[in-house]
Design a protein around this nucleic acid. Structure first.
Lengths: 221, 221
DNA sequence: TCACTAATGAACATTGTGTTCGATAAAAGA
DNA sequence: TCTTTTATCGAACACAATGTTCATTAGTGA
C-alpha cells in the first residue's frame, strides 16, 4: 500500500524548492544561484531550507534522484507491459531519449549546459556502472579486445552524454527516435571494432587523417 | 627580437600564482580553492592578486592560455622542421597526446577531474571550432551525410576529451602512441560511417542491442 | 643615482553561509 | 471538535570569503 506518512507541509516545501531551483538554473545557471535566490523564489524561510538540505548541491542531487526514480519506474512498467507482448525488448538508449523528450524542461535544468558540473559527473558514473558489468560479462566470452573495456565503456558513456546535452542545449531539433538512430549510427561501428573485435586492425595515422584532410594534401596551418 | 619589456616582478608574481594554483588544484580540486589559499601558497599580497586577475577563473584561464600557446608554438616548430623531411605530416591528436604526456602535471591540473568545469567547456569549444571548419569543407564535396556535421563534430570532440581526461585521471597507464591508436580504433569507423557515408544503413535497435546482450546467435554480417 | 611602478598590508564594506531559538500556524490523531 | 505534534517562520548571530582602497615600501630599468 501507500506509505503516506509524509506531512503535507513537507512535500509542499520540497516541491516549492525543487521548482524554484529548476527555474533558476534555466534563468541564470546553477553556479550563479545563491541559497537566498532559492528562498526568495520558493518563498520559504531560511531555516526551513537547511532543515531539508545541507546545501545547494544536495538539493540539486535530490532533484536528480527524483528524475532518476521517475525514469526507472517508467522503465519497470514498460518492461512489465511488454513482457506479454510479441516484442519483449526495451531499448535503454531509445527510452532514455524518449523520457528526456517527455520531461525536457527537467532534463534541461538537470543535465543541460546550465546545470552544475557535479551532476554530469554523477550521471557519468551512474551510466558507467550500469554498463561496465554487462560489458565485462561479454568480454569473458570473446577474444582479447584491441581496446581495454574500461576505456570503451568510458568512451561510450561520454558519447551518449555528449549527444544528450547537445540535443537539450539546441532545443531538441530532432525526435527521440532520430537521436537514437544517430547514436546507433555513430557508436555501432565503434562497438563492433572495440568489443567484438575487428577484422581489420586500426588505421595508420596517415590513413586515419586522410579521412579528414581529403585527397588534396595541405594540413592546415 | 625579444619583447622583453616586462618587469621582472610581474613575471615573478604571475609565475608564483600560476604555480600555486596548479599545486592547489591537484591537492584539493579547483572548486574548493579560495583566493586566500592562492595568496598563502604563492606568498603574495591580496591587492597584488586583484591587480593581475579579476578572479580565480581568470587565473585558471590564463594558465590554460599559457599551455595552449606552448603547444601551438611546439606544433609550429615541428611542422617547420618536418617540412623538409620525407614525411611532412604532423598528426594533431597524436601530438596532443604527446604534449600531454610531456607536460602531464600541468595538463592534469588544467584538464583533469580536479579542474574547473569551465575549462573543459572552453577546451571543447576550442577544439570544436578547430574541427568544424575543415569538416564542413569536406562535406561540400561529399553526398549528404546520415548524421549532421555539427553533431558528428561535437561527438568527436567529446570522444577525444573523454579519452584525454580518462588517461590523465588514471595516471597515464599507456603511452601517447597507444592512446592515439585507441582513439583511431574507436573513432575511425564512426568517421567513415558519419562523414564519408556508409554502405550499410544504421543498425536497427534490435541488431544494435544484440551487440551488447550477447545472445547465443552471433551478430555478424 | 633617480624616476618609475609593482608589491605590500591593513582596513573596510559587502555578500553569502549555516546555525539557533522562541513564536506561530498547520497538520495528524483521537 | 479538541489536543498534540511538528514544520515553518523570522530575526539575530558568528563566520568566511570577496573585492576595493590607499599610503607605504622596495625592486627595476635606464
Amino acid at each position: 500500500m501507500k506509505e503516506k506518512k509524509e506531512d503535507r507541509r513537507i512535500s509542499r516545501t520540497r516541491r516549492l524548492m525543487h521548482e524554484a531551483l529548476m527555474a533558476l538554473i534555466v534563468e541564470k545557471g546553477y553556479e550563479a544561484i545563491t541559497v537566498q535566490d532559492i528562498l526568495d523564489r520558493a518563498d520559504v524561510g531560511r531555516s526551513t531550507f537547511y532543515a531539508h538540505f545541507r546545501d545547494k548541491d544536495e538539493l540539486l542531487l535530490s532533484s536528480f534522484e527524483l528524475l532518476r526514480t521517475l525514469f526507472e519506474q517508467q522503465q519497470q512498467e514498460l518492461l512489465a507491459s511488454r513482457r506479454t507482448g510479441k516484442d519483449p525488448e526495451v531499448y535503454f538508449v531509445l527510452e532514455l531519449f524518449r523520457h528526456t523528450g517527455q520531461h525536457h524542461k527537467l532534463y534541461k535544468a538537470i543535465a543541460g549546459r546550465q546545470s552544475g558540473e557535479m551532476i554530469l559527473k554523477y550521471l557519468h558514473r551512474y551510466l558507467y556502472n550500469m554498463l561496465i558489468g554487462p560489458n565485462t560479462e561479454i568480454m569473458k566470452k570473446r577474444k582479447a579486445p584491441p581496446v581495454p573495456i574500461e576505456i570503451t565503456t568510458h568512451y561510450l558513456v561520454s558519447a551518449l552524454l555528449s549527444l544528450m546535452t547537445w540535443w537539450l542545449d539546441n532545443n531538441m531539433p530532432y525526435s527521440p527516435e532520430k537521436m537514437d538512430e544517430i547514436f546507433r549510427t555513430l557508436t555501432a561501428p565503434t562497438i563492433e571494432a572495440a568489443i567484438n573485435g575487428s577484422d581489420h586492425p586500426a588505421k595508420s595515422p596517415k590513413e586515419f587523417y586522410s579521412l579528414f584532410i581529403d585527397s588534396d594534401c595541405c594540413p592546415d596551418k
